[in-house]
């Protein structure tokens, strides 16, 4: 019984995903927005763009880099932050 329920649930999920997917394909969804241009946001944007996605990177500051850009060096190698 439980297994069957699981199956049904799986099916529902699948068809749901399919319909969402379809609605996405029909519209122009498919780009990614990254909110915040610190080291994490920049890395995520680079990865996605390399993988072939269009990325909108938004940041509140006039330049990307976030707090990391303000650091003099980083531990434990004391490499420069920029």
């Amino acid at each position: 019984m439980e297994k069957e329920l699981e199956k049904i649930e799986d099916q529902i999920r699948k068809s749901l995903a399919d319909s969402i997917r379809k609605s996405f394909t029909d519209s122009h969804f498919g780009d990614v927005m990254v909110v915040g241009g610190g080291v994490s946001g920049v890395q995520a944007s680079l990865d996605l763009a390399t993988a072939g996605f269009k990325v909108y990177l938004v940041d509140k500051a006039p330049a990307i880099g976030g707090h990391m850009a303000q650091l003099d060096k980083t531990f434990p190698t004391n490499d420069c932050s920029i």
């Binding site: 996405f24 394909t25 610190g38 994490s40 944007s45 996605f53």
Partner: peptide
Amino acid sequence: SVFTASGAGSQCAQLLDYRRGKL
């Protein structure tokens, strides 16, 4: 922060795989 970025990126890609490269 760097590898969670790659992780989050790849999960977006997983979600939107059908759009890859079309944009």
